[in-house]
């Protein structure tokens, strides 16, 4: 058997590994993000929160990781776009009748849509918080990140956008978490049920934690 040696990274499986890898990287990032946000629950007028946020904004290692994070998001999005376009081409003539619900969950089939909603949410999210922080750093001003949360989350419209963004995140994670392990070939009758259960609870808990923050701010419970 001769070896035709196809290009690993551009092969369909290579693209999938990259999707899984960047996906897991973003899943780890969400844990860091939620831990930092949770500092608002010290309820000390944002002293602890601002300390941690200041560390994240000024520490050189965090700055480098931030570049890695954006690279991860861009790779995840670009690969998803390429894969979606290729997958659409694989079935030019659609079915007149298709009973997809009989064999798979709607969210496993809607990762592209959920991802697009997440990306739209991300633009709003970055415009709300990330951009003002960067502008302050650029101008050499002191930026009270905690105080900047209040006007944003007192707006019911923005609160709704955030909650909808989190619903998209929930379903994206419900499929994505366990899917990444399958892509890396980690499917074992002993461990896969644990991975699936862990992925489910990870998705639910992280989304509930994220949702609790704008809600408590909106209700004025965080001073």
């Amino acid at each position: 058997m001769s070896n035709t040696s196809p290009n690993f990274i551009t092969s369909s499986l290579g693209k999938k590994y990259l999707m899984g890898f960047t996906g897991l990287f973003l899943i780890v990032f969400l844990v860091v993000h939620v831990c930092i946000n949770a500092c608002i629950y010290f309820n000390d007028s944002g002293v602890t929160y601002n300390m941690v946020a200041g560390f994240m904004a000024n520490n050189i290692i965090m700055r480098i990781l931030e570049v890695g994070l954006f690279l991860g998001i861009v790779l995840h999005v670009v690969q998803a776009l390429i894969l979606t376009l290729q997958n659409n081409k694989a079935r030019p003539q659609k079915y007149a009748v298709q009973n997809s619900a009989a064999s798979s969950t709607w969210y496993s089939r809607s990762m592209g849509l959920l991802g697009t909603l997440l990306l739209m949410f991300l633009v709003v999210h970055l415009a709300n918080f990330w951009v003002p922080t960067k502008v302050a750093v650029f101008n050499g001003e002191e930026h009270n990140t905690f105080e900047s949360l209040k006007p944003v989350f007192s707006n019911p419209l923005i609160l709704t956008v955030y909650l909808l963004g989190l619903v998209s995140l929930l379903y994206h994670l419900l499929h994505g978490f366990q899917s990444a392990f399958q892509t890396f070939g980690l499917n074992h009758k002993k461990y896969t049920p644990f991975i699936k259960a862990f992925g489910f609870w990870y998705s639910v808990i992280i989304v509930l934690l994220f949702a609790s923050m704008p809600v408590t701010m909106f209700l004025g419970l965080i001073k």
Partner: peptide
């Protein structure tokens, strides 16, 4: 498989 124009796997399990 890639050359034949099949799509890629998104682990829906269908």
């Amino acid at each position: 498989m890639d050359l034949e124009g099949f799509g890629s796997c998104t682990n829906t399990g269908a």
